[in-house]
Write a protein that binds this DNA or RNA. Structure first.
Lengths: 197, 197
DNA sequence: ACCAAAAATATGACCGGTCGTCTAGTAAAC
DNA sequence: GTTTACTAGACGACCGGTCATATTTTTGGT
């Protein structure tokens, strides 16, 4: 891919960007190659010049998703001018705001959507998601461990287990948000997180 | 449907039963009508005699899912020979065991899978799921309220909010179970529930 | 009880369309 | 001119759904 022209690089990026939005909204099986190329304004035949397959595209879209969506939240999580516990709360608040304000309580999390739909049917996609979410959990766990050292969070709770639980709760809240077509599950999640940690 | 023959009733049931398993495993868009009729051993044209459309089938499968999967758990939840808090714990334990032992940590929850995949794209399916999960949450909330009256559960926590949070956490744990191909998220959920209530 | 006709139930071939992928051909770069 | 990059449209498979026809069940008469 490093030998592509500048024009090709742009097409590749546009396909990924526009295609990722559709994949995020509709899921894997309801997203056709035609949907993607139409959204990107790229000829259909070109798709296979840039990506080996629909699966290859999806794996790359997952990488792009985490590369785009997570760094701003990570900045909040690693803002050392704030206490560790507050950083964690700010982190979840930040993500809640994105869900509510930027995504209008729709779409949820692309990785969760794809995991739910595809994890048992496509190993490459499952692995691509697992690698990234494990990494996210590691970052959050570090912050929780710091908060425990500061005495801000109960040390009888294993940090990694607590984070896994909270991340699962966040995932579930996003599914319910779609099911209820409501921000309540997200707000309820935030409210509970404040009470629990 | 009340005018069907006995043979027809059996075919209808077989389509629903076998089709529900496939829908549960593969999701809506990856399940074709042909998948369903093949699994049920019913001719394809007959499918449309029994169901108006793929969507109609899915709505009925959702009803069957809750009608089949929930009553046994509800029995556990409403077992008055046990204290309310213990009933709730037994209830979640029961559902965890089903996930791990009967479903081998696969498939998760059909309703969650479908909600994640379809809620934003098909209103009939979304509503069918919402009605049922609201009902489930109501039952659990009643048990939590009883436990609060017995002083078993902290009354500063709103029962419905607590239940919504726990149910979301369970949903997320099932997604992560599929993503990790592991029972850890389910076990972690149970462990956290015991600590939180 | 039996039978023919009517009504109800069931079905298989077909429909028009979409799907992911491929490749001969064209365009762009060097 | 040669090499590399890109693409239009064809391919075979599959999709949800239709409906004329086939089959089964019910009804009513004897």
């Amino acid at each position: 891919m490093e030998r592509k022209t500048e024009k090709g690089e742009m097409k590749n990026d546009t396909l990924l960007e526009k295609g990722m939005e559709i994949l995020w909204s509709k899921g894997y099986n309801a997203t056709s190659i035609n949907d993607i190329v139409e959204a990107a304004g790229v000829p259909k035949g070109s798709f296979y010049f840039y990506f080996k397959s629909k699966e290859d595209f999806t794996v790359k879209a997952i990488e792009k998703y985490f590369g785009t969506m997570f760094p701003p939240a990570l900045e909040v999580l690693q803002n050392k001018s704030v206490s560790p516990k507050q950083r964690i709360l700010d982190f979840y608040e930040f993500r809640s705001q994105v869900l509510k304000d930027e995504l209008n309580c729709k779409m949820g999390c692309m990785a969760c959507n794809l995991a739910s739909e595809m994890a048992e049917h496509n190993e490459e996609i499952r692995k691509a998601i697992e690698v990234k979410t494990q990494l996210v959990n590691t970052y959050i766990t570090e912050a929780v461990e710091e908060a425990q050292e500061y005495g801000e969070i109960d040390t009888t709770l294993n940090a990694a287990d607590l984070v896994a639980f909270l991340e699962d709760a966040g995932k579930g809240a996003m599914v319910t948000m779609k099911e209820r077509n409501s921000a309540y599950p997200i707000d309820n999640f935030m409210s509970m997180v404040r009470k629990l940690i």
